[in-house]
Amino acid sequence: MPSEPLVAEHALEFPGGYTRTTGPVIGRFLTELRDGRIVGVRTAEGRVLVPPLEYEPETGEPVTGDYVEVGPAGTVMSWAWVESPRKGHPLDRPFAWALIKLDGADTALVHAVGADDAKAMRPGLRVRPRWKPEADRIGHITDISCFVPEVTAMVAPIRMEYRVRPGRSLSRFLEGVRDGVFLAGRCTHCDKVYVPFRTSCPECGSAISEEVELPDTGTVTTFAINNLPDPRAPEVPFVSAYIQLDGADVPMIALVADVPAHEVRQGMRVRAVWAPPEERTLSMANIRWFAPTGEPDVEL
């Protein structure tokens, strides 16, 4: 007895393919396909069979000689998604098999749909044939490479460029930030302190002329944990928070760091972490983020 099992490789093949005559009905369909048209055949009852068969499946009656151009668009009735195409499949990338009822047909055609992914497929999806180039069409069901979804959306690239200046209020505030202080504006009419500095009161509309310097400490009033990276944040997840600076009546939005995201809480006391003086510019980047001071929480 041989120690290894004997195995022979064996292929069953018709070299060059097996030639089949088509008969007049299938032949007409394939001839029209070669010309880039899809036809169905009308039955005695008036139904349009696509692809054409020689006999009406329900009655066995021969079909009429009446050929009807259908489609080329159609509607997906049901579909199955192939993530890993096999060597015999019509497409070498993921695709769907579908039963497609072409416009004007009473039956469905089985073919491939070249869609981007399974999420693009649904019953009711409108599709159209993608033909092989005319020179490559030979009168074969694969003269249609596949069907593709009809166009229902398009992407319009838009990009405009601007030069933006911060305005007088923000410029003044940024000068403060460059010098390591938070400048606020106090409305003498409402007795409210706004930070960043502004030149008019959003509540009463009065002009604000009184500048107030606020300390760089404050209290977290609310916050969000962000899981998408941001170039300004030290890590993911990171926390963006409303911080009410001591002496201000409105909160300011800023990052909170140097603390695990899940430990950040409302009422937490924080202090600004500044960039070193030599790196400071007229920019909010001077404040890297706020970090906990370690003081007891504040009741909000």
Partner: peptide, 15 residues
């Protein structure tokens, strides 16, 4: 004529 040349395999038509 219509199905085998597409390479429609058994699991695909069942699906």
């Amino acid at each position: 004529y219509y199905l085998a040349p597409l390479g429609l395999d058994q699991v695909s038509f069942a699906a």
